[in-house]
Design a protein around this nucleic acid. Sequence first.
DNA 1: CTGAAAGCGCTTACAG
DNA 2: CTGAAAGCGCTTACAG
Lengths: 314, 314
Amino acid sequence: MTNSPLIREETAAHVKRVAEDLHYTASTLGRGLVTGKTATIGVVVTTIRDPFIGEVVSGVEDVANEHGYTVLLACSQGDPHREISVIRSLQERRVDGVLVAASRVDSRYLEQVSAMKVPVVLINRFHPGGLTRSVMIDNVAAATVATRHLVQLGHRQIGYLGDQFGLQSDTDRFAGYREALAEADLPFLPELVSHGDGQPDGSVKAAHKLLSQRKKPTAIFCYNDMAALGALQAAASRKLQVPMDLSIVGFDDLFFAAYTQPPLTTIRQPMRRMGCQAAEILLKLLAGKPCDGTIAIEGQLMVRSSTAPPTARV
Amino acid sequence: MTNSPLIREETAAHVKRVAEDLHYTASTLGRGLVTGKTATIGVVVTTIRDPFIGEVVSGVEDVANEHGYTVLLACSQGDPHREISVIRSLQERRVDGVLVAASRVDSRYLEQVSAMKVPVVLINRFHPGGLTRSVMIDNVAAATVATRHLVQLGHRQIGYLGDQFGLQSDTDRFAGYREALAEADLPFLPELVSHGDGQPDGSVKAAHKLLSQRKKPTAIFCYNDMAALGALQAAASRKLQVPMDLSIVGFDDLFFAAYTQPPLTTIRQPMRRMGCQAAEILLKLLAGKPCDGTIAIEGQLMVRSSTAPPTARV
DNA sequence: CTGAAAGCGCTTACAG
DNA sequence: CTGAAAGCGCTTACAG
């Protein structure tokens, strides 16, 4: 099916027509075997149920498709066993390159991906290595901006509702939170930080812990929008009005953030665009073009209605 | 790498060890060429950004993986051009079977999938044909249950906030809505139905249209939870209290439904399980086992706090 | 029981 | 310019 100027146009047209009538399409298996390319990229994620991941993968799929590539989906489910089986499956299928958008994967795993000797692009992750690149949001800076927003509204008791302790992005966002406190000369109060799981359920509990302090926070900066959903719920169940009694800021700007009641102030992370960029880097690498360093994305503060100055009640 | 009792165990172990050291994995390209199987299934969706789709695909990926299959992702984006290019791409890669979880695909498209001569399983879609099966929720029945719930609470002015007009599932849910009205001897009022787009943005507008009637509804049954998000927003911007001034019921029970304020009464659609079931049917078909008919899933009413009896104010 | 050959569907380099 | 052959990495049927 390779076009060539050596064949009479009408002949080519005829062949094409017949091929179409027969529903014939050249097999990439045969082609792949000889060219060593499959025009397929592996996308490794924790779970595709996560709306953050969905956005990223959508961007990836889009540019991949545009360039004739197809996406092989690999969900690790955060399970070490599946992590390795899923990687092997990509390797067996001889993907041309790999994209990883899984926040919670351990490093052995990235080691294994590297061992495939194909280009790999990491999203919101970093791993040194010749063929691996990253596109990541500047978590520290974005978290500082988010917390600073609360400081500027007049809050002095600001809580941090994190994801699981030890997760890189959690550590970074926490660092940004502390940085904003420090720059405003606010004391860091350990009892104002609580760790959930980056999901609504776990975050409700973590939020309650924060809100049951004797000196409770007037504002909470949440690890992500999922956690903010939990915080919103916890506030409602304690009859706290948001933002009058409690300000809440999230992170990600998932589709529902503009639709919570009240609409959520959050840091917008251009998830889809990050997916696109990551795919573009990968395709460049596959085309043999040089492409170095890690791309740092800036988060953007979206001020909506879940934040306000603290009310002066004691 | 095929195990065989004919080879000494220790030899096999040795070979395996060396293979592992060399990071060798048998290529499925060579194998596929001779066996005619790729252990790959194509999953066609509108867009992976849709949380409904994410859940379904997660289920599919799970059972596929468990059985040694890998998922090739194909997003049509509802674009006819991409629909065909994406199908071709699956065909070129010689997927063993196809799963379609795209609500808005036209039938020409399904025709093309059928022409691939591989088993296909449709989710929430029906298409006659020898090799195609379906797993679908009973939209009419579930919508009747949802509307009946409102009737039983005492509502007489019940609105329907639909998806785009003409979509099969919209038509079915609308039919269920009318059925519940009829069985309660309530008149059908055309001015109480409004069509959005199954997304929050478009549904806000559609909800406003409903709420600006002279005799406005005291309850709205929404096509899905996304639409309900829009209805919730519209209510809030009109200072209507949910559920006191307006009851709202959704459809799907997406992850955020339990976390809206107030938590959303909705029809739970077991999305993940539907994905699993669809994959299981496909795998059965691939194994040559007979497997017929379409599986009908029942929706489940989840009563939360967005519905209540209408207040007696005029 | 075992090892060499044929062949799956392609592309590419080469001989005519 | 064109057509036949070799070969990519596998599996399988077959000869020894």
